[in-house]
């Protein structure tokens, strides 16, 4: 019996894979047309972030059929964060690095506060702070690390793509098919961008739009941790996967590894923590049954 004989399965595949890919590709095409005369870094960054945002928002609309405004439940905030985040990062391109880093911190605090607000309303202030601050600190630190290393290692931010794909599986096993679909759509948008940028733009040093990716993935992981009880050990392994290309950076510094772009080895390096995270999540599912 084919998977596609199920109307529901076909719809889920379309929502998770096809619609976000098409929306991202459309934005990519528009960006190439707009920047045809100027393939400068700034144009690339702008359209990369916008393309991934378009892919993710398309997935949100197709999966949930509606985006309540104002948002009612926490998942309703995700497309709002994606669009607002893109606007902030677009503006931040002209800011100095210190201001960009500070804006990143403010975004993390704001998003964490909004997503945890329903739980904070049920908790006392001390417990609320204990809930928000460690998460925000970890998220901010991971974000700064990813941005710095994405440029430093020329691995294209592939570990981020691996973490997003891993979270799609971990979230599903952890009890939320919705978060799994949204994470999968993010991974598809990121991967699609990488492929188009490499083979259509024929850019040798490809890089996924990391700012918007970290914002969306971090939001999904936070919702999964607090509202779906995704195993925290699995989530921490996915965060650790973001640093999977650190050994490659060390080898490159010592001259052992060439200066050529290394997205494939970075993807391979990110596999062990991602696979381990998936195994932990599936072990949790088996024990719950």
């Amino acid at each position: 019996m084919s998977l596609f004989s199920s109307q529901m399965a076909t719809a889920m595949l379309l929502d998770t894979l096809v619609w976000p890919l098409l929306a991202m590709a459309a934005a990519f095409g528009i960006g190439r047309l707009a920047a045809r005369q100027d393939m400068a870094k700034r144009a690339f960054d702008t359209w990369g972030e916008l393309a991934v945002t378009a892919g993710f928002v398309a997935a949100c609309v197709s999966i949930r059929r509606q985006i309540p405004l104002p948002p009612v439940q926490v998942v309703d905030w995700l497309p709002v964060f994606a669009v607002a985040g893109w606007a902030v990062f677009f503006a931040a391109r002209t800011w100095g690095s210190a201001v960009r880093i500070a804006s990143r911190g403010l975004v993390v605090l704001a998003v964490t506060g909004i997503l945890l607000a329903p739980l904070l309303a049920q908790a006392d202030p001390v417990r609320g702070l204990a809930m928000v601050l460690p998460v925000a600190a970890l998220w901010f630190g991971a974000w700064c690390y990813v941005i710095r290393n994405t440029w430093a290692t020329a691995t294209g931010g592939v570990p981020l793509l691996a973490a997003a794909a891993g979270h799609a599986v971990v979230a599903t096993l952890g009890g939320s098919l919705l978060l799994g679909q949204l994470s999968g759509a993010l991974a598809v948008s990121l991967g699609g961008w990488l492929v188009l940028d490499r083979f259509v733009s024929k850019r040798r040093a490809v890089r996924i739009p990391d700012e918007i990716a970290v914002l969306i993935l971090g939001s999904l992981m936070l919702i999964g941790y607090q509202y779906s009880e995704t195993p925290p050990s699995a989530l921490l392994l996915l965060v650790a996967a973001l640093a999977a290309d650190a050994p490659l950076r060390t080898l490159r510094k010592r001259g052992v590894w060439s200066a050529a772009p290394t997205p494939v080895p970075a993807a391979i390096a990110a596999l062990p923590p991602v696979v381990l995270a998936v195994w932990l999540a599936s072990a949790g599912l088996r024990s719950a049954a």
Binding site: V74, V75, Q122, G175, L178, L179, A288
Partner: peptide
Amino acid sequence: GYAPRDKDLLGPDFFNAKQFP
């Protein structure tokens, strides 16, 4: 009657019990 299904239903996909207890 099945704990994994209860966990799914109580999560953000459906009832979102932590936000709407």
